[in-house]
Write a protein that binds this DNA or RNA. Sequence first.
DNA 1: TTTAGGG
DNA 2: CCCTAAA
Length: 477
Amino acid sequence: MPKSNRKTAYEIHVYWSRISNAYKLVKRNGNRERLNSGEQKIKINFLRSLAVLKKTTFLLFRFRSSEHHSLPKSSLQPKLGSSPSSLDLDQLLDDANEVGEFHATNNLPNTYAEVAENSFRQNRRFQLGNSSSENKSPGPSRIDTDAFGISELSATMVMEAEFNNTPVERGLTHELSPGLGTKGRCVTPLEGNICGTILDNRNIHKFNTNENYIENGDLSDENVKGDIVANELASCSRERRLRKPTRRYIEEFLDSKSEHNKGRRKLPRKDKYLKVMSTEESYHIRHEVQMMPRSDSQCGTSVPVQPKSERRHPNKHVPVSGFLSEDESSATECKNVYSSARRCKKYDRRRQKMWTLTEVMRLVDGIAEYGTGRWTHIKKHLFASSPHRTPIDLRDKWRNLLRASCVNIQNKKGVEGKQTHASRPLPKSLLQRVYELANIYPYPKERGPKSVKAITPPMDLIESNSLSFNWGRKKYE
DNA sequence: TTTAGGG
DNA sequence: CCCTAAA
């Protein structure tokens, strides 16, 4: 098994690199607004190849990140690392959609049918004896002279041919199909991963039927059928594009990409205490959190989660640069697969982490020791073990504590306190201590020095007093 | 880079 | 908890 998979993965890897080259060429020469028919052919062929490629790219990532190290990583990793970033894959996929839609809406079936026919012929040619040119991708010099000549055409054709009619796809569908058929997904870690999440039987079928459809020579109704094919192609790429990558994929992708991102963007300083998380992940997590139902019964309150949690990622609008998307089925399945604990973890990542009593006490101790305004000290010395509490958090918490203590002071003074937060009442002793500390270490402006402080709680009191007073007066009226 | 303060 | 201005 390892051997065949290894072979398959390598073939895909080769395939990918070729299509990358083709894309670069096309992009350089054929991304103009108006393309002549020859250029259109090139582009369409490329996009068709791309659609096939998309089915298999997951395989590379799965394979690479699987526990199996039977495949020498060196053979895959360079490509994995370089390909997605050297190509702007998002752009690429958008192009695919764009062209698909363009053809779907603009009635260019003839072109497509012709292309299909050409493809068919080229396939034949390739099968007959073109395979020797396997690794030759047309060089730039050649393109300069012959921007959209046969060289490129054959390049994309060869790729396509390889995929539809040659061991690559056969290898994929046949060598790995056992996993597809089996219900228990992970027959073996590798096979299960590959077959469960990468290969989409339905789409492969779809694609194959398209191909057969054309190859059968049934091109009499080119207008109609070309249209159908174009539509299918468009929808195929569209639906794949729109799907949200699963968390698992994101993680793996980021893993594989992490080296690449190194110099790309400076991380915000706030991550000093935190594990580095790339903006993409942040983006996804944001959205995941938004999408998740808010059932935080398990993970919400007072359970001191110790996630290697990260946060404070200022840029929300970083576009997803992921170019792959999994099936919805696998996406939902992913959600199910991941245990509630894991979900919880994911959950807490962007949500407020409740302060536990011990944390509060530690904070109070820290303030007693260092005073207010030295939040980094407190963080370093007392919260070194809780990476999710930043100095700012400590300060915020202290602010809230002050507020809470004042409320309770009010209560002390007789105003019947409706405990503003009945959810997690703090022990009075603690609040008392907060109050004392607030006198010792006045927090700037929030509650001033003692004199001011003497004013502030009364201010609250005054408010309520005046309220009651007014009320009383009204009563008298 | 840290803190204060507002949202 | 986030963001930003100011120190």
